[in-house]
Design a protein around this nucleic acid. Structure first.
Length: 424
RNA sequence: GGUGAGAUGGGUGAGUGGCUGAAACCAACAGUUUGCUAAACUGUCGUACGGGUAACUGUACCGGGGGUUCGAAUCCCCCUCUCACCGCCA
C-alpha cells in the first residue's frame, strides 16, 4: 500500500497518478484518507497523554507502597479510575480509526511511474521494441493443440478426466520438453546471479496480503479452506514473502532470487479462444525472478531484468515484442510493467509469456520489507519480479513456429536439456 | 492425531508483579592502541506511531489475542508456532 506520509505530502500528484490508472473516486478517497489520518493523530495524542498520566500515578503508588504509606497509596488508586475509563474509550476509538485508515489504504492501487503511457485497455500499451523473426508458415500449419495430439505430447482430455479442464497431462517428449525448459530457465537465472530457491506452493493469508493478491484477487486463487491456505498463482508470493518483516543491510542489496513453481489459477470468467490448448490453464509451470533493491537502484534493476528476459527469449529463437503497459492495463500493485509476448505463428497471435514489474515500495510497505542505509536510517525497499518464463505459451510457440514436414525442431539451446533434436 | 516442554532484542540467554525497553555474553559498528594482522580497551548498538527546527521527549511492543491489577515479560484464559517422545506415513 501507499505510504501515508507521501499521500499527505504529494496529494495532487497522487491523485493524478490514480486517475492515470483509471481509479475511480481518487480525489474523494484521498481526502478521506488524509482526514482520517488527522483524526487518528489527534486521538493518539490524547490517548498518549492519558496513558502517561496513568503510568505516573502507578509509579507513585509503587513508591508510596515501598515507603509503607498505605493510606496515601489508596488515595492515589482512587484517582486512576477516571483516567482508565476515558483511556479505554480513546483506545477503542484509535483502533477504529486505524482500521478505517488501513482499509482505505488497501483500496488504493499503486501510483504508476511517469513513463507509464496514458490508456485504458491493452490496445493502448506501447510497443517498446521487438526482436526475432516471425516465420512464414504454410497454409496447413497446425495450432499447437493439433500438434500436441499428432505427436502425443499433451493429453487435454485425460486431464479433464483426472481433474477438469485446464489441467493437461504432458506425455513423453512433451513432458521432457517441459522439464528441459524448467532446468534451462533455472540454470540461466543462476548464471545471471539469481539465487535458486524452492518455495512452498501453499501460502497463508498473511503472505497473500503481503504481496497484494489479497484482498484484491481473492477469487483468482484456490483456497484450501480446511487449513485456510492458498495455492500460489505465482512463485512471486512465497519468494517475495521471504522478505516480510525483514530489515536488510544496504550492502546486501539487491537481493536476486529465482524459483521454479507450479502455479494455480482459477481463471474464473475466462472463455473462448483465449483458453484453447495451452493458452490459459489452471495449473502451469513457471520460473520466476525476484529482486529486492534500494529505491535509488530499482529502476536499473528493472532494466536488467527486462534485458535478461529478452536475452532468454532470444536464446529460444522466438519472435517477441516488449510492451510498456498503459495506466489502465497495469496491475493494481505495480508502478511500471513490461509485458513480453511471443508470436505463435499458427494461431497468428501474440501470447504473453512474461510480465516484469517494479512495485516500488507498495509491496514493501505491506511486507514491512526494509533496509538500513549505510547512514543507519531505515527505509522501505523496492520489490520487483518477472516471469522468466511461463512455460505453456512458450511451448505453444515453440511447437507452432518450429513445425516442419519432418517434425518439430528443438532450438539449439534446448537440445542439451531435452536430449533430442526433433519431435517426430 | 496423542503427551510433555517451550516461545524474551541480530544470536545465546537472565528475568515469577513496581528498581526492566529489558542483565550478561557473543556478533555488529565507531574509536584508542599497533609497522600489519590479531589481541586489549572505550563507546554505540531494537522497532513502530506521536510531539518538537533540534537537543530531546510521550506512548506501545518480551509469539498473537483477551483478562486480573493502581501497576504485567512476570499471574489467568484462548489461539498459533517450535522442540521432544509416541502413533501414522512419502
Amino acid at each position: 500500500m501507499l505510504i501515508i506520509k507521501n499521500i499527505i505530502d504529494n496529494r495532487d500528484s497522487v491523485i493524478r497518478g490514480l486517475l492515470k490508472k483509471h481509479f475511480h473516486n481518487a480525489e474523494q478517497i484521498i481526502e478521506q484518507i488524509i482526514n482520517t489520518d488527522i483524526e487518528r493523530r489527534n486521538i493518539q495524542k490524547e490517548l498518549d497523554t492519558n496513558l502517561a498520566a496513568q503510568n505516573k500515578i502507578a509509579k507513585q503508588i509503587g513508591a508510596l507502597m515501598a515507603q509503607g504509606k498505605r493510606d496515601e497509596a489508596e488515595v492515589a488508586k482512587a484517582q486512576t479510575s477516571q483516567y482508565k475509563e476515558h483511556g479505554k474509550l480513546l483506545a477503542d476509538k484509535l483502533a477504529e480509526y486505524e482500521n478505517n485508515l488501513k482499509e482505505l489504504l488497501w483500496q488504493v492501487p499503486n501510483i504508476p511511474h511517469d513513463s507509464v503511457p496514458e490508456g485504458r485497455t491493452a490496445e493502448d500499451n506501447r510497443v517498446e521494441r521487438s526482436g526475432g523473426e516471425i516465420p512464414t508458415m504454410t497454409e496447413d500449419a497446425l495450432p499447437h493443440w493439433d500438434l500436441a495430439k499428432r505427436y502425443d505430447l499433451i493429453d487435454f482430455e485425460l486431464g479433464v478426466k483426472i481433474t477438469g479442464a485446464g489441467f493437461p497431462v504432458y506425455k513423453g517428449k512433451g513432458a521432457r520438453l517441459q522439464r528441459a525448459l524448467i532446468n534451462f530457465f533455472l540454470d540461466e537465472a543462476r548464471n545471471a546471479g539469481y539465487l535458486e530457491v524452492e518455495p512452498p506452493y501453499l501460502v497463508n493469508a498473511d503472505s497473500g496480503y503481503g504481496t497484494g493478491q489479497l484482498p484484491d484477487k481473492e477469487g483468482q486463487m484456490y483456497h484450501v479452506t480446511a487449513d485456510d491456505l492458498y495455492l500460489i498463482p505465482t512463485a512471486e508470493i512465497p519468494v517475495t514473502n521471504i522478505f516480510r518483516d525483514v530489515i536488510l543491510q544496504e550492502k546486501d542489496l539487491p537481493q536476486c532470487l529465482t524459483a521454479y513453481s507450479a502455479c494455480f489459477r482459477r481463471e474464473a470468467g475466462s472463455y473462448g479462444k483465449d483458453v484453447r490448448g495451452l493458452n490459459r490453464l489452471h495449473q502451469f509451470n513457471k520460473v520466476e525472478i525476484v529482486r529486492v533493491d534500494t529505491p535509488k537502484h530499482s529502476y536499473q534493476s528493472l532494466d536488467e531484468m527486462v534485458f535478461y528476459v529478452e536475452k532468454l527469449i532470444g536464446k529460444l529463437q522466438l519472435p517477441y515484442r516488449i510492451l510498456r503497459l498503459c495506466g489502465g492495463d497495469i496491475s493494481f500493485t505495480s508502478s511500471l510493467t513490461f509485458d513480453f509476448e511471443v508470436y505463435s505463428a499458427a494461431q497468428k497471435r501474440w501470447l504473453e509469456v512474461s510480465s516484469v514489474s517494479n512495485f516500488e515500495s507498495y509491496q514493501a510497505n505491506r511486507l514491512k520489507c526494509r533496509y538500513k542505509t549505510t547512514e543507519g536510517k531505515i527505509e522501505l525497499c523496492h520489490t520487483l519480479n518477472g516471469s522468466a518464463l511461463a512455460l505453456p505459451r512458450i511451448i505453444a510457440a515453440l511447437l507452432e513456429n518450429n513445425q516442419t514436414p519432418q517434425g518439430i525442431k528443438i532450438p539449439k539451446a534446448l537440445v542439451p536439456y531435452c536430449g533430442f533434436e526433433w519431435i517426430d
